[in-house]
């Protein structure tokens, strides 16, 4: 009986959301009518929060309403598309620019030397693993000390043979950041003068920050995982 009642209330609330309040007002049983009204209020509140979440996303999607001004990301993406065609992977450049890895070294030099952009400071290189069996990614956060603007660039690579061109000749700190990403994820940076592990020992096995990493059992005879048996 209550299942039919729930279905009936759901139908009536649907009609009311579309604007037809008569269905609710015509319910004779007072308990059912009040239940239907409470369900209607809850449905309206949920749809309002969903709309509110959608609205700021839309607002950030159109960063400016005036067609003459462009955001920094769009300007950079257009400049890159003009000079190095075929290197931008995705059209959505609101939060980051997705490149596909070829010409990355020349793009990096262009980003650093172009007088409008002047990204002279590489803030951080982060490695990223999407999950077991999926792709790996390298993310660069660049910043300019003269124009005070910042940008994020992402490059995806294949999990089984990850290779990305190295930018250590452009920003000197790329040397150590790339060695750390190699140590943690196994991504090889081509053109790096010394691609060795920097944090883990040289003879460590595995790429620790990958999602499918398993700790090795012993290292030079010392047990690695915590042993919990044998406590008094």
């Amino acid at each position: 009986m209550s299942e039919d009642q729930d279905k009936y209330i759901a139908e009536v609330v649907e009609k009311a959301l579309r604007g037809d309040m008569d269905a609710i007002n015509n319910i004779e049983d007072r308990v059912t009518r009040s239940k239907a009204k409470a369900a209607l209020i809850k449905a309206k509140r949920l749809s309002k929060t969903a709309a509110a979440e959608a609205a700021p996303a839309e607002e950030t999607a159109q960063t400016d309403t005036t067609p003459t001004e462009k955001s920094l990301n769009q300007k950079v993406a257009e400049a890159l598309a003009k000079k190095f065609s075929g290197s931008i992977d995705s059209e959505d450049v609101n939060e980051y620019i997705q490149l596909n890895g070829k010409n990355w070294f020349e793009i990096a030099q262009y980003l650093k030397d172009n007088p409008d952009l002047l990204f002279d400071s590489l803030q951080c290189i982060t490695g990223f693993d999407f999950g077991e069996g999926e792709a790996l990614e390298v993310r660069y956060n660049l910043h300019s000390m003269t124009h005070y603007h910042a940008i994020e660039i992402r490059i995806k690579t294949d999990r089984n043979d990850p290779k990305v061109p190295s930018v250590e000749q452009v920003w000197r700190i790329g040397d150590w950041f790339e060695r750390e990403t190699y140590d943690m994820y196994g991504i090889v940076f081509e053109g790096h003068h010394n691609m060795t592990r920097i944090l883990c020992p040289e003879d460590w096995e595995g790429w620790p920050l990958r999602k499918d990493y398993e700790t090795q059992e012993t290292y030079h005879g010392i047990i690695v995982p915590k042993v919990k048996e044998g406590w008094e």
């Binding site: 944090l199 460590w204 620790p208 990493y213 010392i222 047990i223 690695v224 995982p225 915590k226």
Partner: peptide, 12 residues
């Protein structure tokens, strides 16, 4: 618990 590179006690 999750420290793969940490020695679990120097008495090892």
């Amino acid at each position: 618990q999750y420290g793969y590179h940490v020695l679990k006690g120097v008495d090892l």
